[in-house]
């Protein structure tokens, strides 16, 4: 857990946001993320993010489910507790396919949801800093990570020149923490630090 300095630029139109993202990136700044009120088509490409591996994980969870179901059922019905069901062979593959399918889907679905939560750092009681409350309403919030060499004044001016309606500098916790927003003083100190 470490606090870091960020420059935040807020835009109220995606048509302004896209060229700004392009300019900020070509100028060599590192965009930490852009928080938007709704999914914006093509923004991930504009930010140069790599393709998610979530579906590869999903495939692996799926085949794990398939193998679990098939090996478990076949062990039970042929070795552990063979039963004569309607005169069918003990190794009754067609009857097992629906269950195999269900377990495949269950493993893939639950596994992918959990992986997604892990990747997005989402869990009960886990808190993350909000750079701007209006990011959930109508504002596109671009967050740029600062290094020691970043000139914050120059950067905020640069963002304003590229259409940012609101800019500020925040010194905040980058990762997640377990706690409460009201008891935890961390998120609410930032404005003062920025002003100082």
């Amino acid at each position: 857990m470490a606090k870091k300095k960020f420059v935040v630029g807020c835009f109220n139109d995606e048509a302004v946001l896209f060229p700004a993202v392009k300019k900020v990136r070509t100028s060599g700044y590192k965009i930490q993320d852009v928080y938007t009120p709704f999914p914006v088509h093509g923004l991930d490409h504009a930010l140069g993010m790599r393709e998610t591996s979530l579906h590869t994980a999903g495939f692996i969870y799926g085949i794990t489910g398939t193998t679990t179901a098939l090996s478990c059922i076949s062990w039970i019905f042929t070795k552990d507790w063979p039963l004569n069901i309607g005169g069918k062979p003990n190794f009754a593959l067609p009857a097992w396919i629906p269950i195999t399918f269900e377990l495949t889907v269950l493993f893939a679905a639950v596994g992918m949801v959990l992986t997604f939560c892990y990747l997005c750092q989402l869990a009960p009681f886990v808190k993350k800093h909000h750079f701007h409350a209006r990011a959930t309403d109508d504002l596109f919030v671009m967050v740029i990570e600062c290094t020691d060499k970043t000139n914050t004044e120059e950067l905020t001016a640069f963002l304003s020149a590229n259409g940012a309606v609101e800019t500020d500098v925040q010194f905040v916790e980058e990762g997640w923490w377990i706690g409460r927003y009201d008891k935890d003083e961390m998120p609410f100190e930032n404005k003062q630090i920025a002003a100082a």
Partner: peptide, 12 residues
């Protein structure tokens, strides 16, 4: 394909 096959296979 499978639904058609399995129901018939099962009922026999």
């Amino acid at each position: 394909w499978f639904s058609q096959y399995m129901l018939i296979w099962y009922a026999n």
